[in-house]
Structures are given as C-alpha cells and as structure tokens.
Simulated scan of single mutants.
Amino acid sequence: MPTSPRLPLRALVTALAVTVTAVASTATATGATAPRPAGCAGYVGLTFDDGPSDAHTPALLAALRQNGLRATMFNEGQYAAAHPAQVRAEAAAGMWIGNHSYTHPHMTQLGQAQMDSEISRTQQAIASAGGGTPRLFRPPYGETNGTLQAVEAEYGLRQVVWDVDSQDWNGASTDAIVQAVSRLTAGQIILMHEWPANTLAAVPRIAQVLASRGLCAGMISPQTGRAVAPGSAVHGAR
C-alpha cells in the first residue's frame, strides 16, 4: 500500500513554525485573552497617585521593575506638564497612566466647566508628554457625583477608586502598607502614592506577598474597572 511522503527535517520544522504562527494570529484576531503566567491565580491593581516628579518617580519605577511589578500611575496634569520626561519613563517602564485631575481639587465642589477643564487639560498634558491618552480617571480624595461622572464619560474615561486604602498618605508604616496589600483579592485595587518613603520601601515586600498568595500585578480594565491580566482582550488601548 502507498505510504505518506516523508518531509525533510528542515521542511517539517518550517511547516510547524508556519502552523504555530497561524494559530497565534487567529487567536489575536479573535480577541483571545493572553495566557495567564504560571503561578497567577488572579490579578490585582497596584495604583500610585500624585506623580510624576523628578524627586520620586525614578526610584519608584526602578523598584517596581526590579521586583517584576507593573502598576497604574494616576498622574496630575500639572506635574505631567512640568515633568514630561517622567511620564515617558513611566510608559517606557511598562506602567499604565491614568488621569488624576490637573490640580487635585475637591472635584465635587466645582462646576461642570471647571471639572471639564481639570480633566481635559490633564488628558492633553499626559498625551503631549508621551504617555498616551488615559482611559482611566481617579477622582481626587475619591470624591465623585453624577456631574463629574458625566464629564468623565465625555472623555471616554472609566472612574477608578479603590477597594483597599494603604493609608500611606496618612503616615502608614511600611509594615502597615504591606499588610494592606495582603488584604487584596483577585480583581481588587489598592490606593498608594508615589511620594511616601515607606511606600517605596514596601515595594519588594509587596512583590513577595503577592507571589506567596498566587496573585500578580495586573492592569485596570477601562471596561470593568477591575484588575485584569496585562494584554487581556478586555483592556483596550492605553
């Protein structure tokens, strides 16, 4: 009986490579979710407010990268405009960049036009600095109302508050910050800031705590406002 023709080894390897590439392309085209890294039982959102700055951003980015962590940086527009190189550094380090208003006012005490100005100027400052167009907005102090949410929607922004407050802004110790991170569950978000020294000192231990619980630092989905896998089909463009 006839036998199937046998391909030379090099041709066989080439054919296999083409097949794998085709499968990968199909998965991308259909919006398939990126595979979850081994050891990730879920994702949490690490967020840092009030940057960027020449004084604090470089050290925080270095610590995050050294410990294999990614985070969402909620930048104030006034600082993004003053320190555009740090915005670019955040993006180059693989961080996600969100809008935290221009001057950090109590937004609910402003009129709609003032709210619009705070948000629109920050969108422009971050984009002009090379940080992309933000898809996420964190209201200063976590204060919000229907008018503010309507303005956010005009700019295609998802409002992101937090599930756990690290209290680093209130003088929390490094131990307390790490303990706060340990309370996170999959999908949840923690509030931190880039300027407290105790927060910077906590970064290596934050990585250890997450790893011990099978959690990984993820991105915040503009669709759901929850932490998801980096590169997930639901995240949209930065």
Rank of each mutant, 00 (worst) to 15 (best):
G130W: 03
L16Q: 12
A93N: 11
A11K: 15
A229R: 09
A85N: 14
I189Q: 01
M115K: 02
A71E: 01
V181I: 15
S4M: 15
Q86W: 00
T174E: 12
F137S: 00
P139T: 05
N67W: 07
N198A: 15
V178F: 09
A233E: 08
L61K: 08
A34W: 06
E118K: 00
A227K: 05
I97T: 08
S120C: 07
P2E: 13
F74H: 03
V13Q: 11
V151P: 01
D175A: 15
A217M: 05
T224E: 08
S25K: 12
A127E: 10
Q66Y: 09
L69T: 09
T47R: 03
W169S: 13
F137I: 03
G132T: 09
R65F: 04
A233F: 11
C40M: 06
L210G: 01
F74K: 08
T147S: 12
F74G: 01
P58T: 09
A202D: 04
R158V: 05
E118P: 00
A176T: 12
D175H: 12
Q188R: 10
P8I: 13
G231E: 05
A217P: 02
S53A: 12
E194P: 11
N198W: 03
I220T: 07
T174D: 04
D175K: 09
N67C: 07
F137C: 01
D49Q: 01
T144C: 02
S25G: 15
A125P: 05
P5V: 12
T21P: 06
H56A: 14
C216W: 04
T21S: 15
W162R: 09
M95P: 02
Y155N: 00
R238T: 14
T224D: 10
A59M: 08
L61C: 07
G98R: 04
A150I: 04
G51P: 01
I190M: 12
P140F: 07
D54S: 15
S53Y: 04
S173Y: 06
A197G: 12
L210M: 06
G68C: 07
A11H: 15
R138A: 03
T122S: 03
A93T: 05
